[in-house]
Amino acid sequence: MSREKKLKKPVASFILLTNIIFLPLFCLVGAIKILGFPTWFFDVARCISAWSSTFAFAILFKKIYPGQSFIHFVKNKFKTKLKFSVILSVSTIQAFIFILILFLVLNNSEVDSIFTISSWGMLFYYFLKNLLSGPLGEELGWRGFAQVELQKKHSPLKTSIIIGFWWGMWHLPIWFTTGFMGMDLIKYILFFMISIVSTTIVMAAFYNLNQTLIIPIIIHQFFNFFIGLINGNLIDLIMYNAIFYLVVAVLIIIINPKKVLYGKKATTIIKGKHYMI
C-alpha cells in the first residue's frame, strides 16, 4: 500500500473518530437509563460505549499501519513479561492513595457506611464491570496507540500531557450528567482533568518501564475501582484523587526513573516495542 494512503495525522483522526463514535453510544446509554431498562442492560450498554476508542482504532488501523495485522498488533502489546518491581510499585502507590483518601473521608464524613459495596458478590461484580467498561475498552487506543504514536515526535512527558488532556475531554458528555451546576461543576471538571492528566503521566512512566499494556490497564482499573468503593462526596473524592495523583506525577517527573519521561535518552519504537537509546 502506498504512503499516500496513510493518515497524515493518525492521532488527531483517532481522537476525532473516538468522539464521533462515543457520542451516539452515550446518548443510547442515557436513553436506556431514562426508559427504565434493567440495570444489567444499562451496564452492558455503558461498557460498549467505553470501547469507542478501541472501535475507532480498529477502523483506522489499516490506514495507520498499512500491511500490518490488527490482531498481531494487539498481541504485541501484551507480549512483554511483567516486571514484579513495576507491579509492586504501581499497586503500592495506588493502595496508599486509597488508604489516604479513606482516612480523610472517615474523618470528614458522617455516612453510616464508608464503603459502597456490601457483599463479596457485589465487590466481584463491581470489579469486573469496571474492568470491562474502562481499562480494557480504553487502553488499547489511548495508551497502546495514541501514547506510543505521539512519542515518536514528542517526549513521553509532553505526550502524556497532550493525551491526558484529550482523554479527559473525551469524558466531557459525562460531566453534564453528574447533576452538578455552577461552581460545583467547575470544581468537578478542574479536579477531574488534574486527575486524568496526572494519571496519564504515571501510566506513561510505568508503561515505558515495562512495555506491556497490562500496566496501564492495572493503573486505570485501580484508579476507577478504588474511588468507586468509597462512600463520600463525589467532588471531595475527585479532589483528593487529583491532589494525590498530582503529587505522584510530580515526584515521578522529578525522579524520571531511567529517563523514561524526558532527557538525553529518547524513547524510540521498533516493531511496536519501546527501546531506550
Rank of each mutant, 00 (worst) to 15 (best):
Thr39Met: 08
Ala58Ser: 09
Ile32Lys: 07
Lys75Ala: 12
His72Asp: 15
Ala31Leu: 14
Asp43Pro: 01
Ile48His: 10
Lys62His: 08
Lys79Met: 07
Asp43Val: 04
Pro38Met: 08
Ala31Phe: 15
Phe42Met: 05
Leu28Ile: 13
Ala31Ile: 14
Ile71Trp: 05
Thr39Tyr: 10
Phe78Met: 12
Phe73Ala: 13
Ser69Trp: 09
Ala56Trp: 01
His72Ser: 15
Gly67Arg: 08
Lys81Gly: 02
Trp40His: 09
Gly36Ile: 14
Phe41Gln: 12
Pro66Leu: 01
Ile34Phe: 14
Thr54Leu: 05
Ile71Pro: 00
Cys47Trp: 05
Pro38Ser: 08
Gly67Phe: 02
Phe37Cys: 02
Pro38Thr: 08
Gln68Met: 05
Ala50Cys: 07
Leu60Ile: 12
Ser52Gly: 08
Ala58Tyr: 03
Ser52Tyr: 09
Ile64Val: 15
Phe70Ile: 13
Ile59Glu: 00
Arg46Asn: 13
Lys77Asp: 10
Thr39Ser: 07
Phe37Thr: 04
Lys79Trp: 01
Lys81Arg: 02
Arg46His: 09
Ala50Lys: 00
Ser49Phe: 03
Phe78Cys: 14
Leu60Val: 12
Leu28Asp: 09
Lys33Ala: 09
Phe61Cys: 11
Ala45Ser: 08
Arg46Lys: 11
Thr54Ser: 06
Lys83Cys: 02
Ser52Glu: 00
Phe42Asp: 06
Lys77Tyr: 02
Gly67Val: 00
Leu35Trp: 15
Leu60Thr: 06
Phe70Cys: 09
Cys27Phe: 11
Cys47Ser: 13
Val74Asn: 10
Gly30Arg: 02
Ser53Tyr: 01
Val74Ser: 10
Ile71Arg: 09
Phe55Asp: 01
Leu82Ile: 00
Ala50Tyr: 05
Trp40Ile: 11
Leu82Ser: 07
Lys81Tyr: 00
Lys83Asp: 07
Ile71Asn: 09
Val29Tyr: 02
Phe78Gly: 15
Phe55Thr: 07
Val74Pro: 09
Pro66Arg: 01
Gly30Pro: 06
Lys62Gly: 15
Val44Met: 11
Pro66Ile: 00
Ala45Tyr: 02
Cys27His: 06
Cys47His: 06
Leu28Phe: 15
Lys33Tyr: 15
Gly67Met: 03
Phe42Leu: 06
Val74Ala: 12
Lys63Leu: 12
Phe55Trp: 07
Val29Cys: 05
Phe73Leu: 12
Val74Asp: 13
Phe41Arg: 09
Lys81Val: 00
Lys79Leu: 10
Trp51Val: 14
Phe70Val: 13
Phe55Ala: 05
Ile48Thr: 13
Pro66Cys: 01
Val74Trp: 04
Trp51Gly: 06
Gln68Ser: 05
Ile71Cys: 04
Ile59His: 01
Phe42Trp: 07
Pro38Phe: 10
